[in-house]
């Protein structure tokens, strides 16, 4: 009897598992399949996931600068995400070390103050930031995006790095101070090397958020030569580039770098997330 019951449970489990995986994966399968379909198959009925005559022409089209500005957008996204993540990580290394190891009055108030960032979504900030950016003469520059993105990821970066710094035994740092190192040297010589995996993960997290951002980019950027991927692809959708295969190929090429980065730090990010700190 027990065997029969556990077999039944097993079947139910695998059926449910397949349903969950189908729900998760069908959009991806659709995108991948469609990116290899020739044009006449895109709109064929009944719809199919897998192309009959797969073609690479959409990928070639996307990567050809004469027909599609994908590489320009890719470069802009790369610059903006790299700079904002880099500057953000430096700020959060200093800030989280200050929270984790140094004592001063007002520290816990500042620490809690950082959390209020959670209370304000991008849509509450976009109007005043647009006015500020325009007044500072930064409208239609990549700089406007870099400075906006830095602050969006700070709370999580501070939280994750602070937690990591606290796991470094304080005795090592004290020994170095007794040997004559200053606090800054301690950070540079001991904390940074020991925290390399955490720092890389925080950098990648911030990079992904910047890579994905649409709202601020759509408001701050006007020139097509400065558009980032989300902005550029969305605008192309409404032009003559409305070719499904090409849009799908561009979507996949936008997603792949981020998915690879994520998989490389999955373990760290997921344990960091489950300790409670996250910001979308």
């Amino acid at each position: 009897m027990v065997g029969k019951k556990s077999l039944k449970n097993k079947i139910i489990f695998y059926v449910l598992l397949m349903l969950v995986l189908a729900f998760v994966l069908i959009p991806f399968i659709t995108m991948i399949g469609s990116s290899f379909k020739p044009d006449q198959e895109q709109t064929a009925l009944p719809p199919k996931f897998i192309p009959n005559n797969p073609t690479l022409k959409h990928y070639k089209g996307v990567l050809n600068p004469e027909i599609f500005p994908f590489l320009v957008y890719f470069k802009n996204s790369l610059i903006v995400a790299f700079l904002s993540a880099g500057i953000g990580v430096v700020i959060s290394i200093f800030g989280s070390y200050s929270f984790a190891r140094l004592e001063y009055s007002g520290r816990s108030i500042i620490q809690r103050g950082v959390l209020i960032v959670y209370m304000f979504g991008g849509v509450l900030l976009v109007i005043p930031l647009f006015q500020m950016i325009s007044k500072m003469g930064l409208f239609d520059t990549r700089t406007s995006l870099v400075i906006t993105y830095i602050v969006q990821t700070l709370p999580v970066s501070l939280y994750m790095l602070g937690n990591y710094f606290r796991t470094i035994p304080e005795s090592i740092e004290e020994a170095a101070i007794i040997d004559g190192c200053s606090r800054l040297e301690v950070i540079y010589r001991i904390v940074l090397p020991l925290s390399a995996p955490a720092i890389v993960s925080v950098f990648i997290y911030a990079f992904m958020i910047a890579w994905n951002e649409y709202l601020f980019a759509s408001v701050f950027i006007n020139s097509s030569s400065l558009r980032t991927l989300p902005l550029g692809l969305n605008q192309l959708f409404y032009t003559q580039h409305y070719i499904w295969g090409r849009m799908m190929a561009a979507s996949i090429l936008t997603a792949v770098p981020v998915i690879i980065l994520f998989l490389s730090i999955e373990r760290f990010i997921t344990s960091g997330l489950t300790f409670g700190g996250v910001k979308e």
């Binding site: 001063y104 209020i116 900030l125």
Partner: peptide, 30 residues
């Protein structure tokens, strides 16, 4: 130590103050 603590947290405070708190108040004004 306290002084260093303030210096190290200063960039965070400036970023959040300038790009979150100030805009929120400015938004109210607008």
């Amino acid at each position: 130590e306290a002084k260093l603590g303030y210096w190290l947290i200063l960039p965070t405070v400036l970023a959040i103050g300038g790009l979150i708190l100030y805009p929120v108040i400015y938004n109210l004004w607008l």
